[in-house]
Design a protein around this nucleic acid. Structure first.
Length: 286
DNA sequence: CTTCTTGTTACTGA
DNA sequence: ATCAGTAACAAGAA
């Protein structure tokens, strides 16, 4: 599941690879994944190029040289893989490196650049989307997101406000993109473990210290995950098709039934909180 | 066959 | 009006 660290990794990778390259061909194999008119989508992209790439929450924003913006959301199983025009050089010793052929059966939309390199949007479950928007529409979309946890706009005073009088669980608050941008199921569990707070705690019941711990944990966990280029649990790969290495640093997500790495006593439990599979240590999290 | 996986949103009810 | 909870979407694994 691409969340903030994974999308950030893809964005940073792609910025080094595709900026300024002329888009010579746009292929749409599944129209359903294009929001709005597919015909207009191709028209806005073909012959143009990307000037910049940004991210808000889990949403990628490609700035086009024609003043429009390409939005790409990977949702659960989306991948965005860049591939150079590969010339297979036979020879050397041993077997040749096996490179997955692209486009594959899940490459529903892809772009070819003037140097014959390509950008492939693969999505097994087809939850993701691509969309071309104007600047005013983009600004409306951005305004719908809460603060970015790694930005200067993310302040402890405002952070505490979002918990005040809320009857829902602290996990539901962390997952709500309108309140904080970019956190999904994996990092919500990891953040709450690091902060020592049970995911099912009522948001409004948190003590000052607990809110401060969560605030700090959002930053430390996400920063560390970016450092390790994200978490590959199922489908996530970076823009080169490589896995993320944060999975080794996960403390609770996917560790149900295993021993807690912090207290070395508790067994990681799994419950349903905010309709999501939720892992926590009942010794370390109060 | 059923159940589980998750990001987002439309919908329902309080 | 606001907030919270749930179903639905999709395809594959177990």
């Amino acid at each position: 599941m691409p969340e903030l660290p994974e999308v950030e990794t893809i964005k940073n990778d792609l910025k080094k690879k595709i900026l300024g390259k002329k888009i010579k061909q746009v292929t749409i194999r599944k129209k359903r994944l294009v929001r709005g008119s597919a015909r207009a989508f191709v028209r806005e992209l073909k012959g143009n190029s990307f000037k910049d790439i940004k991210r808000i929450g889990k949403l990628l924003i490609f700035t086009l040289n024609n003043g429009k913006y390409l939005l790409i959301h990977l949702k659960m199983t989306g991948q965005l893989v860049y591939r150079r025009n590969k010339k297979i050089i036979a020879g050397g010793h041993g077997s040749p490196k096996i490179t997955e052929h692209l486009p594959n059966k899940y490459s529903h939309i892809y772009f070819k650049f003037n140097d014959d390199s390509g950008l492939y949007f693969n999505d097994m479950r087809q939850f993701g989307f691509v969309q071309i928007v104007s600047k005013p529409v983009l600004e409306k979309i951005i305004a719908g997101f809460g603060p970015e946890p790694l930005s200067r706009q993310y302040k402890i005073e405002e952070f505490k406000e979002i918990f005040k009088n809320r009857k829902t669980s602290v996990k539901a608050v962390l997952l709500n993109q309108k309140l904080i941008a970019g956190i999904g199921n994996i990092y919500a569990d990891e953040i709450l473990f690091t902060a020592g707070v049970r995911p099912d705690r009522r948001a409004g019941s948190l003590k000052q210290q607990e809110m401060e711990n969560i605030f700090n944990a959002t930053k430390s966990v996400l920063r560390k995950a970016i450092k390790y280029r994200g978490t590959t649990f199922n489908d996530y790969v970076d823009a080169s098709g490589n896995v993320g290495r944060f999975v080794r640093h996960l403390k609770v997500y996917g560790r149900e039934g295993e021993r807690c790495k912090k207290c070395e006593k508790g067994i990681i439990l799994k419950a349903k909180v905010a309709q999501r599979g939720t892992q926590y240590c009942k010794v370390c999290q109060k």
